[in-house]
Design a binder for these strands. Structure first.
Lengths: 242, 242
DNA sequence: GACGCTCCTGACTGATCAGTCAATCTATCG
DNA sequence: CGATAGATTGACTGATCAGTCAGGAGCGTC
């Protein structure tokens, strides 16, 4: 139902109560959401009880139901908060006059940084929503589809400009791009891939290079990526990246 | 526990009872597994009851527990049956003296054909196991990791032979390849991508072309693959490398 | 014909947990 | 102060469901 009360990440509720000193009194609703992220990430949505969330938040059981209509709504809220921020970011990137590679790099960077800064939240989103076709995946199909379509639009424009070849449908290219990123996150979540500041930075470059340039020795593709029009990024960071 | 009683897909149990006419009497265990696939795909593992499986199979509730120790074991069995077949197939492909592109194409074709022939089963495997990090994903981490490693090995060999560039770690390339395929299946499962014999065939080619050749206009990559989805049997081994 | 074995049945149980609710507390304001 | 409104509490309930079990049916074998 009305799950998207807070479309932005950790938005400070307007007119929040404050203590005498002026410091914001801890927002219990936020407390519950943050606790839920930890509990969902640790035990999984289905395996955890609502009381686990309340305990983790240091709050009475009933309060969860004061702020949320159901356990589902807690997850829905978490997902929409983050997903909408991502959609907004993709739209902003798309609107800028950047080369495709940089647009895609910006999107990859955003998602990877999201994981870097809040792995638990991204774990929950991917494991419990994005891939959980039955319950929540169906609910948020529209939002998920929008992301694919925005990325597909970026690819399509690149094709129209002659930067990408036409043989691969933009819709498909979008799936390859997003699928690669999500698989990366999954690898980190499952502990199948090493994690660390260096790996995260390198991954941003790898995603773009793989999807744009391919695994084979490329002529232009590889050369083009070596420069980087904005010049602002050094991909292969200091030496031993293996 | 002992979930892998039947390592092959629909293996005929040895010494199965037969009717007077010699026709095989319907194997109730198989009946239950097949019914479970349908029920899991329709309602999801968590949302369905064991009685739903029994009803779907036209069998008494208790019989499910005669053949399986728990609801979990039913899902484990389904997953392992199929996943082991896939691993076996990848190993066979790897052993053959084929160019990388054809090896990868064979793997992509296997997975996509698996979906084509039994979408419900693949849906269950992807949605309930492969991405369900919490419960089953953890249980089958070893099997899942093996698949990535086998694919990574194929890429690594191609790099050693000079067919693939070295900048992209094989381990990462494997994630991109598998991630692209799984995202495709997810797109079909969610109804975000059109399905049909043609789409499936084209997808096999698209996966390989995207991951190997990239989205940009490539020299060799594009030329090499221009043969199209059907019979891409051209691959100049040891041809113009770097 | 009686023992033993596997297949098969479905009513029952014990535990679990999402969601409810009546009561209490705190803040604010006229 | 007294009133109104929202925040907070946690015991309780009603439903659900995985797994159990006692028994029955068919069949081979000694």
């Amino acid at each position: 139902m009305s799950a998207a009360r807070a479309p932005l990440p950790r938005p400070d509720p307007p007119g929040r109560r404050r203590s005498a000193a002026g410091a914001p009194v801890p927002d219990k609703r936020r407390l519950i959401l943050d606790a839920a992220v930890r509990v969902f990430a640790r035990q999984g949505f289905h395996a955890c009880r609502v009381s686990d969330i309340a305990d983790e938040a240091g709050v009475a059981y009933g309060l969860v139901y004061h702020y949320f209509a159901s356990k589902d709504e807690v997850l829905n809220t978490l997902f929409l908060e983050r997903w909408n921020v991502m959609l907004e970011h993709i739209r902003e990137v798309d609107a800028k006059p950047l080369p495709v590679r940089e647009k895609l790099a910006a999107i990859a960077a955003f998602i990877i940084d999201s994981y870097r800064h809040d792995p638990d939240l991204m774990k929950v989103i991917i494991v419990e929503v994005t891939r959980a076709a039955n319950s929540f995946g169906q609910t948020h199909l529209a939002e998920i589809r929008t992301a694919y379509e925005l990325i597909g639009g970026i690819v399509a424009k690149a094709q129209a400009d002659g930067d990408f070849k036409d043989e691969i449908e933009a819709r498909f290219a979008a799936m390859a791009f997003y699928g690669t990123i999500e698989q990366l996150l999954t690898g980190w979540i499952f502990g199948l891939l090493p994690q660390g500041a260096e790996e995260f930075e390198r991954a941003k470059w790898l995603v773009v290079e793989t999807v744009c340039g391919g695994l084979e020795h490329g002529g232009e593709g590889a050369r083009r990526s070596r420069e980087g029009p904005a010049g602002a990024h050094q991909h292969a960071r200091g030496g031993a990246a293996k």
